[in-house]
Amino acid sequence: MPLGEDGNGWKKKTSDIKEHYDFKEVLGTGAFSEVVLAEERGTQRLVAIKCIPKKALEGKENNIENEIAVLHRIQHPNIVSLEDIFESTSHLYLVMQLVSGGELFDRIVEKGFYTERDASQLIHQILDAVKYLHDMGIVHRDLKPENLLYYSMDEDSKIMISDFGLSKIEGAGSVMSTACGTPGYVAPEVLAQKPYSKAVDCWSIGVISYILLCGYPPFYDENDAKLFEQILKAEYEFDSPYWDDISDSAKDFICHLMEKEPMKRYTCEQALQHPWICGDTALDKNIHESVSAQIKKNFAKSKWKQAFNATAVVRHMRRLQLGTSLEGPSQITPTSPCHGLLLPEEEEEEEEEDELGNGEEESCKCTVHLRE
């Protein structure tokens, strides 16, 4: 079905998108699209616009329809929203809420003080947002730190979930089986190519929680086959000395989410009731030095990049605050990874495409983060 011909009227025709928005600078580029920082004419509101040539959509109409169907249904304070869609003769323009606070790992590394309680509050927000998705029958399927951005540069900024490129809306009686996601965060049942459900998101939240408390992933091996074997067996440890100062409650919380059997795994609702999230068991001890050192060691900076270059947004916002010139070339290189606010289509040029999928409609990119 051609884009937009479903009777929902979600597209706006335009002969020139720049009649509506003043393009400021390129935030990210990929093989099939470009994300631009733009200012809405009249309101001066900043947004991120994903510009997709229609030629790039040929054969991918189902992907974009799926993402639009997902995003149009979502209104949550911790989820990046799709605000508008424009279509010209040559392009589709997806106008997204701009989140300007930077990337999760950057903020943790920059902090001078970071505790279990900070991690607990982050996970609480993520759980609340994912529960909202699950209640709507939506499974994200690619939750990972790179898809978590801060809303603003404020110290107490909320966290935002982005990138719905692999999202799936559960139909009545439907079963998901396409193996997709990012290996280090993907649930055992996905790798086992078994039918799976929204429980895969809960596993991923467990992995993210683990990383937030130690700075390295629970599963790591330079050999993909060995990495997959670890995940399939749900083999992970709370290594000393990195976990010596972490509470038993935090470890218990992670164990309930990183449970091999999906039926035994905590749901978002159950996880929200755990004392590490809703009680007072999360410790206030400063773990910043250890966690930030491990993050810098185990997560290459080039791998942190999100749908658009968050650093460029922060830089631009600071220029606005300082009243300096907006002119000058963008600092974003042509090979900046653009994993997409929407389409999971781009990879860094030096990385080989590695699909876990079986050729179904989802294009599943795999980015492995290795501990050194």
Rank of each mutant, 00 (worst) to 15 (best):
Lys233Glu: 14
Ala282Val: 11
Gly101Met: 01
Lys55Pro: 12
Lys198Gly: 08
Ala271Met: 15
Val130Glu: 10
Glu116Cys: 06
Gln331Val: 12
Lys285Glu: 05
Pro218Trp: 00
Leu71Ser: 07
Pro329His: 15
Asp154Arg: 06
Met317Pro: 12
Glu34Pro: 02
Pro2Gly: 05
Ala293Val: 04
Pro218Cys: 05
Ile246Phe: 07
Met258Ala: 14
Met160Leu: 14
Glu83Val: 04
Ser302Thr: 14
Val36Phe: 07
Phe113Val: 10
Thr178Asp: 11
Gln97Arg: 03
Leu257Ala: 06
Arg319Val: 10
Phe253Asp: 03
Trp243Ser: 07
Leu322Val: 07
Cys364Arg: 07
Asp163Asn: 13
Phe32Val: 08
Ser290Glu: 12
Val109Met: 01
His316Pro: 07
Lys365Pro: 07
Leu133Asn: 05
Val175Asn: 09
Gly102Thr: 07
Ile332Tyr: 00
Asn298Leu: 00
Asp154Ala: 09
Ile205Leu: 12
Arg318Asp: 10
Ile123Leu: 02
Ser363Tyr: 10
Tyr236Gly: 12
Asp142Ala: 03
Met160Glu: 08
Lys285Gly: 11
Ser100His: 04
Glu87Ala: 04
Gly323Tyr: 06
Glu355Asp: 11
Leu149Ile: 12
Ser157Ile: 02
Glu347Asn: 13
Ala56Glu: 13
Ser120Glu: 05
Thr333His: 13
Gly42Ala: 03
Tyr210Glu: 01
Cys366Gly: 08
Leu341Phe: 13
Val35Asp: 01
Gly171Leu: 06
Leu213Cys: 09
Asn223Thr: 15
Lys365Phe: 08
Asn147Val: 01
Arg73Phe: 08
Pro145His: 02
Glu65Ile: 06
Gln193Tyr: 10
Ala271Leu: 14
Ile108Gly: 00
Pro241Phe: 10
Leu46His: 15
Leu148Glu: 01
Gly215Trp: 01
Tyr210Cys: 03
Gln306Leu: 02
Glu327Ala: 13
Asp84Lys: 09
Ala293Tyr: 04
Ala300Ser: 11
Ser33Phe: 01
Glu189Met: 10
Phe105Asp: 00
Leu122Ala: 01
Gln230Arg: 15
Cys366Lys: 11
Lys24Tyr: 10
Ile68Cys: 05
Val368Trp: 01
Ser162Gly: 15
Cys338Val: 11
Met263Lys: 14
Leu356Gln: 08
Gln230Pro: 07
Glu65Cys: 05
Asp118Asn: 14
Val47Ile: 13
Asn298Pro: 04
Leu148Asp: 00
Gly4Gln: 00
Ser152Phe: 06
Ile85Tyr: 00
Glu348Leu: 13
Gly165Gln: 07
Glu146Lys: 04
Gly7Ile: 02
Ala225Asn: 13
Val368Pro: 03
Val80Thr: 10
His20Thr: 15
Glu355Leu: 09
Thr335Cys: 11
His76Arg: 03
Glu327Arg: 15
Leu149His: 08
Gly206Pro: 01
His369Asn: 15
Arg141Ser: 10
Ala187Leu: 11
